[in-house]
Design a protein around this nucleic acid. Structure first.
Lengths: 107, 107
DNA sequence: GCTTACCGTAAGCTACGACTTACCGAAGGG
DNA sequence: CCCTTCGGTAAGTCGTAGCTTACGGTAAGC
């Protein structure tokens, strides 16, 4: 399992999607996320741990609070992986289309 | 839940990731996927159903077999959503950086 | 028309993942 | 120094997602 696939698995949970999407608007503390989301603060911590392990977010201490931000490098890696999907599927589609036109010529 | 987030949730399962990745190399029948993957054929069918519901794959009848392909439009939609994440996180990062330099001037 | 290949769906089981509450540690403020 | 705020971790519960086997249904081949 590559890192990008691990990122996709991490973002598979809707709650983690919501957390990550909030963080794209700027850094947030754990409590701030818990105030907005319909889950408890420990639950938010657990989700943030998963997102951090796959490299999608970063955390830094800010006094007594802990601010989480999206990791641009991680997000870039995920986008690159999706771009790979895109390139290959496009190539496969064009190959299929060319085979189709080949068949049309034969008919 | 937007369609793009539903796609992310669908791709959250590693088996579905494997299925989708295989399909990026070209259309495949259900049995062909089941031969390669370490799960039974009905399990593959169930995964394909999920991927189809969110618009990530398409199916067409080919005689007695059923060929599944990646849906370029669906993949494009997912990429666009990721690009939104990227744009917003970049803007937030730059805003944070500008605030930092502001603070540096004040110190 | 019978058989074979191929596939979707139903029913049921099991494991895991997403919560909760409870507890503890670290950092600041009075 | 307390005390309060803030957050990570442990333990335990519960729902559900993913898998299997079993069955039925359609298209092609002889």
């Amino acid at each position: 399992m590559t890192n990008a696939t691990a990122m996709l698995t991490a973002l598979g949970d809707p709650t983690r999607q919501a957390i990550f999407e909030r963080l794209t608007d700027g850094p947030l503390a754990v409590g701030q996320l818990a105030d907005v989301l319909p889950i408890s603060r420990p639950a938010v911590s657990q989700h943030l741990k998963v997102l951090k392990e796959v490299g999608l977010v970063t955390d830094r201490q800010e006094g007594t609070r802990r601010l989480y931000s999206v990791d641009p490098d991680g997000l870039a890696e995920l986008r690159a992986h999706l771009d790979g999907f895109w390139a290959r599927s496009l190539a496969a589609f064009q190959q299929h289309a060319s085979r189709e036109s080949q068949n049309d010529q034969n008919n």
